[in-house]
Nucleic acid binder design. Structure first.
Length: 542
RNA sequence: GCUGCUGUAGCUCAGAGGUAGAGCACUCCCUUGGUAAGGGAGAGGCCGAGAGUUCAAUUCUCUCCAGCAGCACCA
């Protein structure tokens, strides 16, 4: 960079420097001349009366910077800094602008703090769900279906456990489970507004017998178009619209384990966290205006119970109307107030619950309450949501007959707790670092033999556990017990039941529990009682 | 989608213009061993796909695909 001279006209704001308005033009011209077009652009847009600060380091280096700065770089510990990576970033965060190179670094007061930070990053890398998913044989992804998950037996075991848990929760909370079509006519998506807004991210399917001749086009020009559903809402409205609904039918809570497809930007795909095919724990509550607050509060209570069962703490945020939206401002006022009121009245709009309002973050049809979970190493994940929607019932013409005998529009509350099974499972893998609680663990116990004379006994122990519903495997391989212990520990099996000649003779097992030192000798009955207790899902415990 | 990087055995990775190697995993043999790796042998690869340069390409060039790190996006 070439050196340039800028007059310091005042030191009111910062003790070192800033540029006064009357010298700004000169500064901009110099930046421009030096080829620093971005800095010149930034400075030129400075509003009247604003001041631009610049800082010097030594005599020959100067640059614009918001500051504040240290009086001297000599006060910094050079060992406490590390450059982390280089990446592209758009000028002013807009994809349409030029892309700049951004250098990421991290700085701390001393080397000890830096090392602690690097250690945390290392810990996060160790529990990366993509790594653990492969090591634990839970799922895989491959090029031929990129962005869609191949669930392996052990991974799907966890899924099924989550699904059963969720079904118990919604069954006990007045929901009705439904299942709706995967493919619907494009006109349906036009009517809902999704076609216009999200067309480029939808998988479109021609409703036509494909041409089987070698040369011709597979699809003719006048095929009807259908699309894989990117969400479940319109289908649930179509169920609601069947028959005439009375105010007595409300609230009507339609739940679906809805499998959706979205053609996400390819650079956005990330393991289980961002996929093209996903299954939501999705529900839509059709209700009257005067029922909203109660429904939202019930949802808050349900979400609270569920997140706590997985050991998460959370913050609740209210995402307010975005710039581009459907619906009148009056409706947005109402919708935002209802969500806010519900949380305030439930006593959750507090610092303890991380309450905050996020302007412009809402969906195009509704404001959202969002649940941001904090995991075991302090990272946050936005997962749950409930949204108060007046737009879709209007666009898709949902109505019910009120007490007054007239037709009314229901409000539609969109809500999810896991969000998507794929992503929630990814979060759980990282949260637990692969060490799932026993009720979720794909394999809850392995019976491992020390000598082959104990094979028959091991089989008997495993059969008894399996009969009690424990997910148990036997390891009768001709390997030393050290080897077996190491292997099943690395596989994160919660309990290893070791049996040798002694245990076989006494009718006992030596239990080694993951994360604990030593072993506990107990009878089969005692082991079974312990395993059954631990394998009981949290919602079914007494 | 954008910028940069990467793609070799199931996994983690070496390698070099003349069609390939290690460790772990796998199979078989020996070993029956008391709480985080016993020993030996064997099998296993269209070097992401296509095109170009070359006598010769997994290696060099280009295009595409996928992944990774960011960015942008996320109903």
């Amino acid at each position: 960079m070439s050196a340039m001279q800028i007059d310091v006209v005042s030191d009111v704001v910062c003790p070192w420097c800033f540029i006064g308005k009357r010298h700004l033009d000169k500064a901009i011209a110099q930046w421009r001349a030096a080829g620093e077009s971005f800095k010149a652009e930034w400075a030129a847009e400075l509003p009247e009366g604003e001041e631009l600060s610049v800082y010097w380091s030594g005599d020959d280096w100067m640059d614009m910077c918001r500051g504040p700065h240290l009086p001297s770089t000599g006060r910094l510990d050079p060992a406490a800094f590390k450059l982390m990576r280089v990446a592209g970033a758009y000028w002013r965060g807009d994809q349409k602008n030029a892309q700049l190179t951004r250098i990421y670094g991290t700085g701390w007061l001393n080397k000890k703090q830096l090392d602690a930070h690097l250690l945390r990053l290392e810990e996060a890398a160790k529990r990366d769900h993509r790594k653990l998913g492969q090591e634990m044989d839970l799922f895989h992804l491959q090029q031929e279906a990129h962005g869609s998950v191949f669930w392996h037996p052990h991974g799907f075991r966890i899924w099924r456990e989550l699904e059963a848990y969720m079904r118990r929760a919604i069954d006990a909370s007045g929901y009705d489970e439904v299942k709706t079509p995967q493919v619907m006519d494009a006109r349906q998506w036009e009517q809902s507004g999704h076609w216009g807004k999200y067309r480029e991210n939808m998988f479109v399917i021609p409703d036509e017998v494909p041409n089987v001749e070698d040369e011709g086009p597979v699809v003719s020009g006048d095929a009807d178009w259908m699309a894989l559903k990117p969400m479940n809402c319109p289908a649930h409205v179509l169920i609601f619209r069947q028959g005439i609904k009375s105010y007595r039918d409300l609230p009507l809570r339609l739940f679906e384990h809805g499998c959706c497809h979205r053609n996400e930007p390819h650079g956005a795909l990330h393991g289980l966290m961002r996929v093209r095919q996903f299954t939501q724990d999705d529900a839509h509550i059709f209700c009257r205006e005067d029922q909203i607050v109660r429904e939202v509060q019930d949802f808050c209570a349900l979400a609270d119970r569920i997140y706590k069962d997985f050991g998460f703490t959370y913050a609740i945020k209210l995402a307010l109307r975005p710039e581009k939206r459907f619906g009148s401002d009056a409706d947005w006022d109402k919708a935002e107030n209802e969500l806010r009121d519900a949380v305030v009245q439930a006593g959750l709009a507090t610092e303890e619950y991380g309450w905050a309002e996020l302007p412009g973050e809402g969906a195009f049809y509704a404001p959202k309450l969002e649940w941001h979970l904090t995991d075991a190493i302090g990272r946050t994940w936005q997962v749950g949501t409930i949204q108060s929607d007046r737009v879709l019932p209007e666009r898709l013409d949902a109505s019910y007959i009120g007490e007054d005998g007239a037709r009314h529009r229901p409000i539609m509350l969109h809500r999810a707790i896991f969000g998507s099974y794929e992503r929630f499972l990814g979060i759980l893998i990282e949260h637990y670092a692969g060490r799932f609680p026993v009720w979720l663990a794909p394999v809850q116990a392995v019976v491992a033999t020390i000598v082959s004379d104990a094979d028959a006994y091991a089989g008997q122990v495993a059969a008894e556990l399996a009969a009690a519903g424990i997910r148990v495997e036997t390891d009768l391989r001709n390997e030393k017990i050290n080897y077996k212990v190491r292997e099943h520990s690395l596989a994160k099996v919660p309990h290893l039941l070791v049996v040798g000649a002694r245990e076989a003779a006494e009718g006992k097992v030596a239990i080694r529990t993951l994360g604990q030192d030593g072993q506990r000798i107990m009878t089969i009955a005692e082991a079974l009682a312990m395993l059954r207790a631990e394998a009981t899902p949290p919602d079914l415990r007494g």
